[in-house]
Every structure is written in structure tokens, then in C-alpha cells.
């Protein structure tokens, strides 16, 4: 690992200030992506600004049909939260599928979203539920947040404070694990909103990261049944192809996981 300077700010404002002064600073929360990358000398931030202990970024609440989760809330806290389990059980279940138990003990929702790994699970929930990302500067709608592989709408130094999820009528997440890494080879989040609109978000499969499967959404808008997906054709040309799975196989998984998610919703 390269030399680095560690900072533990007392507030979000101080964190932003520290980062702005750093030559090449990075925020760290759970650190479960950043620290392995630094160990391999693939990243060498001059400064690390630790967000994980900021109380402003913690906590889960449910009010008026919205579940709000602080950015530094761990995957375990979300997975085991009574409020989340009750309001959006699919979101709690998704959090319980990320990485492994020790990763879930430390990894945070804010970190996962800011990193936007193409195989990460949270982006599927955020996009599938049409969540809103609240930063220290503004609100960003899910549809505008994910801009490509490992890139987001966040500006330099911008900090995710919390994420608010509208409680859907029903939702489900189906994940096909990449066997070695435990990331999603393909994960599909299907949500049916209170107004009846169906959103389908796919992670793991897209060549540009998480995306909404418009054709599946369309098929389901007429009839929310998994049979409706049979007729949809998923074009592999926009999908990832690597040693873990070809684009054609991922295209198949998008349909299979989408059908299973629809079946799970019932």
C-alpha cells in the first residue's frame, strides 16, 4: 500500500473540507472496495477521510411511505432492520445478500452507491425502487445517478448523506451470484409502485452498469405475470461478457431472474 493520511472528521461539513484540501483524497466508509484496491497499489489516495462514524450519516427511519437510510448504515443494519423488513422486505433481503457476513458488518449503502460497481446489489434496489439520493449539496433521482461503470452523478467531494426509498406495493430481488466473487453475475429488482407502475432494474449484466429493463417493464405493465416476460427478447450486445459469463448467458439470466422476481411478488 502507498503512504496515505487518515482523517476522522466530526461532521459532514468537516469531511468535505478535509477532502477539498487534500491533494488526491478519497472518502472511506466500510472500505471493503477501497482498501483491497489500495493494498494492490491500484489506488493511492494521498488522504482518506473516514465517513463511517458520522452520526449524521447513520440511521434508518420510515415515515409517510418513505424509508430513509443514512449513507453510513451498514448492510447488516439494513438487512436486520425491522422497519426495512416490514416496509420493503426485498430491500432488506438484498442487503442480506451483499458480499458475506463480515462485509455486511462493515460495508455501507453510501459506499456501495458511490462506488457503483457493475456487480453491486444496491444500485438495483435504488434504481428499481426509484429512490432519491440526498447529498450534502442536493437531491439526485435514481434515474440520474448511475452514469456508467464505477461512475455516478456525484461531483468531486460530494457526500451521500442518505437515501430515501418510496415504499412500493410489492417488490422482489433475485440474484444470481458470480460464484467466486459473490457479486451479482445478474441481479434483477422488480418493484410495483403504489400507483401501479412497474420498474425493473438489472445489475451485474449491463456493459455500462445498472440499467432499467424497459422491454420487461413494458411487458409487465400490461400483465404483471412472469409469463409476460417470455416474449421479451434481451439483446446481449449491451451486456457484459467476461470469464464469469458471456453476454448471451447474462441475457438469459436477466429474463430468468426477472421472472423469478415477478413470481416472488406473486
Amino acid at each position: 500500500m502507498y503512504q496515505t493520511r487518515y482523517h476522522r472528521p466530526g461532521s459532514v461539513a468537516e469531511a468535505a473540507e478535509l477532502l477539498s484540501k487534500a491533494e488526491d483524497g478519497r472518502y472511506v466508509a466500510g472500505g471493503h472496495t477501497l482498501i483491497p484496491t489500495m493494498k494492490h497499489r491500484l489506488a493511492g489516495p494521498s488522504d482518506l477521510v473516514d465517513l463511517s462514524r458520522l452520526s449524521e450519516l447513520k440511521g434508518i427511519s420510515e415515515k409517510g411511505g418513505t424509508v430513509t437510510i443514512g449513507a453510513a448504515t451498514t448492510h447488516y443494519e439494513v438487512a436486520s432492520s425491522d422497519a426495512v423488513r416490514k416496509a420493503i422486505p426485498a430491500l432488506a433481503a438484498l442487503a442480506g445478500m451483499i458480499g458475506d457476513p463480515a462485509v455486511r458488518n462493515r460495508g455501507t449503502i453510501g459506499g456501495s452507491l458511490a462506488n457503483n460497481d457493475p456487480g453491486a446489489d444496491y444500485p438495483a434496489a435504488v434504481l428499481g425502487l426509484g429512490a432519491t439520493i440526498h447529498t450534502d449539496k442536493r437531491k439526485i433521482e435514481a434515474d440520474d445517478f448511475f452514469t456508467g461503470l464505477f461512475t455516478t452523478a456525484l461531483e468531486e467531494g460530494e457526500i451521500i448523506v442518505k437515501v430515501s426509498f418510496p415504499v412500493p406495493k410489492k417488490a422482489a430481488y433475485e440474484k444470481f451470484h458470480s460464484a467466486a466473487s459473490r457479486y451479482a453475475l445478474t441481479g434483477v429488482f422488480v418493484a410495483s409502485a403504489k400507483d401501479g407502475a412497474v420498474r425493473v432494474a438489472v445489475t451485474g449484466a449491463g456493459a455500462n452498469g445498472v440499467f432499467r429493463a424497459a422491454d420487461i417493464e413494458k411487458a409487465l405493465s400490461g400483465k404483471a405475470s412472469s409469463d409476460a416476460i417470455d416474449a421479451v427478447s434481451i439483446d446481449p450486445s449491451g451486456l457484459l461478457s467476461d470469464i464469469h459469463g458471456s453476454a448471451e448467458y447474462r441475457a438469459n439470466l436477466v429474463k430468468v431472474m426477472a421472472k423469478r422476481a415477478v413470481d416472488a411478488i406473486g
Binding site: Y6, R8, V28, G31, H32, I35, P36, K39, L48, D50, S52, P101, A102, V103, N105, R106
Partner: peptide
């Protein structure tokens, strides 16, 4: 809480 000590900086554990 079970934590990967290889993925935690010592300073983070202060």
C-alpha cells in the same frame, strides 16, 4: 462485530 482485519486500517480501529 466480526471484521476483516486485513481490510481495516489500524487507525480506523483507534
Amino acid at each position: 462485530v466480526a471484521t476483516k482485519s486485513c481490510t481495516t486500517l489500524a487507525v480506523q480501529a483507534d
